[in-house]
Design a protein around this nucleic acid. Structure first.
Lengths: 204, 204
DNA sequence: CGTCTCGTTGACCAATTGGTCAATTCTTTG
DNA sequence: CAAAGAATTGACCAATTGGTCAACGAGACG
């Protein structure tokens, strides 16, 4: 049975419920901190029933990570050679920031995994992710060489974009502890990051 | 008995061994993933002996975090009103990056804690940390108002500095998965971040 | 209706793990 | 040296937790 192709309506419904609950629990508590009991409870299933749909805790985790990878990398993919370089990159920054706002649980899921050394997705990091980053880095480097943006290291540029945007999801406890609760910080962050990268990219 | 004031030489030695081992284990596995057995083994003690020095797993964790807080916030403290604004801030960036290089375990320790919602240090975040950030934010805002640096949000500036620098410690698995192993990335990162912040801060 | 697969669960298990305790050994000191 | 206190440990415990299994219930389908 292919995990991505449920046979029946019940399977489809319960798989979705499990992955939804698992996203809550894993993103909040990390892999070790998450328990099958809690995932099962949040999904509205008994623990043995949960294990009827997924063979193990780790299988749920891997299914989550791989299933969300496309969503997660989508903003980077849409950087295109045709557009204006600075607009493309700043657009990427703002899309990524919006992802952090809309999908903080997904961001924390990946953050937890990578902080722990990415034991379960290192092959993805070194494979498809590296390929995608290499491709976009080459594109950015081309822009630099053509004098259309400043001469900067594209890899560290991408790292800094990941860091600054996901920070608002992954470390929201700290952000809210210092700025106070609420959702408005994203607007200010967008303005700041626009300034930061617009200036960094300006040629000359 | 004050935890910070060991009475005997044996206590001093063993406390240090425990905190050193705990730093290894907690930073690598997170709070839930760390086990007393492993900490005790790495410290060269039996588990009951370890619990003779600290009353609980959580006590070790809190002792670690609070004990490392000063080290961790030191670079921010050294931003001074007297110096050249841009030099002060860029200097802070580079000091922070150097901290990530020299103390990656400490960085991961805090990262793990904050990603999980900072349950054990929220009072520090909302207290001393917020105070320090407020103070430095006011200083930076003053520089902006005086036209000595660009007009930017000082809080998000500080967040971005934390994010970009600690990224190289916290997510080193990803950085190395994409750039390959080795220590040389820090040099490139320093150059990139110098460019990034130097430009962002330039007045006008 | 009867059968057969799918879906569900209570009871159970072994391993892990944070923590306790009484007993023992080692150090210090009068 | 002898007593007092500090340090150490093997044995043990209760709770948690990932996972199993046999049995039972529920739909689908001829």
């Amino acid at each position: 049975m292919d995990a991505a192709a449920p046979r029946t309506r019940i399977q489809e419904k319960n798989r979705k419920a499990i992955l939804g609950a698992a996203l809550n629990v894993f993103s909040e508590a990390g892999f070790r901190g998450a328990t099958l009991d809690r995932i099962a409870a949040e999904a509205g299933l008994s623990k043995p029933n949960l294990l009827y749909y997924f063979p193990s805790k780790e299988a749920i985790h891997v299914a989550l990570l791989t299933g969300l990878l496309d969503l997660w990398l989508d903003p980077l993919r849409t950087i295109e050679p045709a557009g204006d370089p600075a607009d493309e990159i700043v657009g990427y920054v703002l899309r990524k920031l919006d992802m952090a706002r809309q999908f903080p649980r997904e961001s924390k899921l990946f953050a937890n995994e990578i902080v722990q050394g990415a034991p379960r997705i290192m092959d993805i990091v070194e494979g498809p992710l590296k390929s995608l980053v290499d491709e976009k880095a080459a594109l950015i480097r081309g822009w630099s060489a053509a004098g259309r943006i400043a001469d900067i290291d594209p890899y560290h540029l991408i790292f800094s974009i990941w860091a600054t945007t996901q920070h608002y999801a992954d470390f929201d406890a700290q952000v809210h502890g210092i700025l106070g609760p609420g959702d408005g910080h994203f607007t200010d962050a967008a303005q700041f990051l626009d300034h930061l990268y617009r200036r960094a990219l300006a040629p000359g």
